[in-house]
């Protein structure tokens, strides 16, 4: 099975009539995701990619029993869309949108803290469970294969690189989650490690981090103290200069904190197999799994 997704996941696409929303609704349905509704204010009552469009998420839920939302709306409206999805009772919200102001997300995260809504992202490729043929995201599904490795990552194409290596080594995936490249994101490494540890269908976890913040250090501590399953990791940004934003809003070394060296040291100390280069991520997972068996 999988974490966060299940055969009961019924998806509403917020921003379904925009270019990216429409395109990826088509690909998600092709893959097998149950996309039951779309939302675009002013377009209610129409169809997009064969999916009924509603004015609000609440309307969509009442008509279709949707229980999960994926967001493609432009950055300046996207934080509101997360709140709308949560207000309408969506259990899982995946926010693909890149470029949302950090303070908006800080406010939203504080609001969601008192509710049951699980937020993935923003600025994420999404979440996919190959065995369920369910993806809420924009990742190329053909590189994924069903199996028992979980994956958590802060980036997009680097995740595909890692998944491709896993698949070639015969290591299929239970669930892969992009947590997003922004400073403030919903689910963190810590939250997801906890879920994978509890998931009977996951045997080991790949963690792909990068410079900035201290999520990786916190994850290392959690793994050392609470994880029984093997973890392999890679940290991007060893050569990144301090004070420069490396593409992702969250990937910046500031005040001497958040360097790759610090993160690699913390992970290694926690007994995690750290891949020396991005070409060794698959092999690192294989090594970690073999060490335990």
């Amino acid at each position: 099975m999988a974490i966060l997704l299940s055969s009961k996941t019924r998806v509403v696409v917020q921003g379904i009539t925009g270019g990216a929303g429409k395109f990826h609704t088509g690909l998600m349905r092709q893959y097998g995701t149950q996309v039951v509704a779309g939302v675009t204010p002013g377009k209610g009552g129409t169809l997009a990619e064969g999916v009924p469009v509603f004015e609000t998420v609440q309307q969509a839920r009442e008509a279709t029993d949707a229980n999960a939302a994926i967001i493609f709306v432009p950055a300046r409206f996207a934080a509101d869309s997360v709140v709308e999805a949560s207000d309408a009772g969506m259990e899982l919200v995946v926010c693909i949108t890149e470029g949302i102001p950090a303070l908006d997300m800080a406010r939203v995260k504080n609001l969601l803290a008192s509710r049951g809504t699980v937020l993935i992202g923003p600025n994420t490729p999404g979440i996919i469970a190959p065995a369920l043929h369910c993806k809420m995201g924009i990742m190329p599904d053909m590189i994924f294969s069903p199996g028992r490795v979980g994956l958590i990552s802060r980036s997009g194409t680097l995740t595909y690189e890692a998944v491709d290596q896993l698949t070639r080594l015969g290591l299929g995936q239970s669930t892969c989650v992009g947590i997003g490249g922004d400073p403030v994101v919903g689910q963190t490494f810590l939250d997801l490690l906890e879920r994978f540890e509890a998931d009977p269908d996951t045997d080991g976890v790949v963690l792909i981090g990068e410079i900035g913040g201290n999520q990786e250090e916190r994850a290392a501590r959690f793994i050392a103290e609470h994880m029984t399953k093997p973890v392999a990791a890679f940290i991007a940004g060893k050569t990144a200069p301090p004070g420069r934003r490396m593409g992702h809003a969250g990937a910046i070394i500031s005040g001497g904190k958040g360097t790759a060296a610090d993160k690699v040291a913390a992970l290694t100390e926690a007994g995690i197999v750290v891949a020396p280069t991005p070409a060794d991520i698959g092999v690192a997972m294989k090594t970690a799994l073999e060490r335990r068996s």
Binding site: S153, R154, S155, G156, T157, L158, T159, E161, G181, I208, E210, I211, F234, A236, G237, K238, T239, A240, R244, M246, G247, H248, A251, A260, P276, T277, P278, A279
Partner: peptide
């Protein structure tokens, strides 16, 4: 293509004994 892969590419160039000129 992609920020994470771009950083990782700089890293692997350095690992192979080169110096990246840019991100």
């Amino acid at each position: 293509n992609g920020a994470g892969l771009a950083m990782a590419t700089m890293d692997i160039i350095k690992e192979c004994g080169g110096e990246p000129a840019n991100f």
